[in-house]
Write a protein that binds this DNA or RNA. Structure first.
Lengths: 193, 193
DNA sequence: AAATGACGTTAACCTAGGGTAACTATGCTA
DNA sequence: TAGCATAGTTACCCTAGGTTAACGTCATTT
């Protein structure tokens, strides 16, 4: 259960066995079945969730009633709503599972305690945040400069593992296009390549 | 010079006078004249820049030769390319000034030293990153769900101070539309409101 | 076996915003 | 003072992607 988390953390900081043992005590294992919710919009996102197994998404519904996917998460990723989590405000996002999933949850207070107990974790979370921030900057610039087709190809290249695990219409939503457009793009690509 | 920085930091963490004094030693004051560059794409973004006075932007040029603005910065904001800065890679962004500007620069090594000397700064930078990450998430969701006109109105509302200090075409670029479209949107708004 | 309901595909039509270009207005620079 | 570059506006036409709707294919339920 904790093995993937161990590897995940060691990618960013060094930890002794004892430190890792200690750190695991702050996490709460949790299963979320297919189609079930980890977070419902309107609630506060109490947990940052590390995905040990499975596949989930976070999404909002806008004023026009349209769903927009903020993020997918599979093994070795985190999912949550950072705004709600850090600011303790009701979330506009919902998070649900595409597959039966196993998570390790870390609530805000535990994160704080963990950082106090093992100060290296302050650095770990800073690095994590950094990576996420950089990725979201990239997504912004791509949405400004690339066509739907280019964004789709980039998605395939960057996240092949996700592509094969979520319905196409979800990918369309992530890319900011309709499922019909994505279908057209795929047809066009299959003809011309 | 350092007064604004002091207030800026105190918004997020507590600092004694001595600690603040010490922290200032890590920053390098720098002036950038109107139309001059702080960073040119291809170079490594060696500094995170805190804006004491002035107005700057960071932008990329895509394969099609189009400029896209990643960020504006005025007083009390930071500007830089986090990817290049933290990963020590050549940047795809350039940063230049719309007005004569005064900055306080913090290079990577100094940031590291500062965090070691006054560990509270590890937290400060984490909070800063957090705020930026949350803001960029919001920008992503907005670009997925809002029309150009809605995004323009949001921009006006969120950043009125920037609106009045940069050319319209720069705002268009930030919003991901052409200057012509922005002009049309403005005409439409002036008629219907 | 039939019914229901996701999902993906295709087609016909529509619209927000892009591309090009002409015309101002406002600087700078010589 | 002219000359030139940059910014903003408007108009015309065009295109990427949205909208609506029909149809086929699965998988799940009854």
């Amino acid at each position: 259960m904790f093995d993937l988390l161990r590897k995940h953390i060691l990618k960013r900081i060094d930890l002794t066995k004892a430190e890792f043992q200690q750190c695991t005590t702050y996490f709460i294992p949790k299963r979320v079945r297919k189609h079930r919710y980890l977070l419902e919009s309107g609630d506060v996102s109490r947990y940052a969730a590390f995905v040990v197994k499975g596949c989930l998404r976070s999404y909002t519904i806008d004023q026009a009633g349209e769903e927009h996917i903020a993020q997918f998460a599979i093994e070795d990723w985190w999912i949550g709503d950072p705004y709600s989590y850090f600011e303790n405000q009701p979330s506009v996002y919902s998070i649900d599972a595409f597959e039966d999933s196993e998570l390790l949850l870390l609530d805000r207070a535990s994160m704080e305690k963990l950082c106090l107990a093992i100060p290296k974790f302050e650095r770990f979370f800073r690095l994590l945040l950094q990576a996420n921030f950089i990725a979201s900057q990239r997504r912004i610039m791509q949405s400004l400069s690339a066509t739907a087709e280019e964004r789709y190809l980039q998605f395939l290249k960057n996240y092949p593992a996700i592509f094969s695990r979520v319905p196409q219409k979800q990918i369309a939503s992530y890319l900011g296009i309709t499922p019909q457009s994505l279908s057209r793009i795929r047809r066009h690509l299959s003809k011309h390549a």
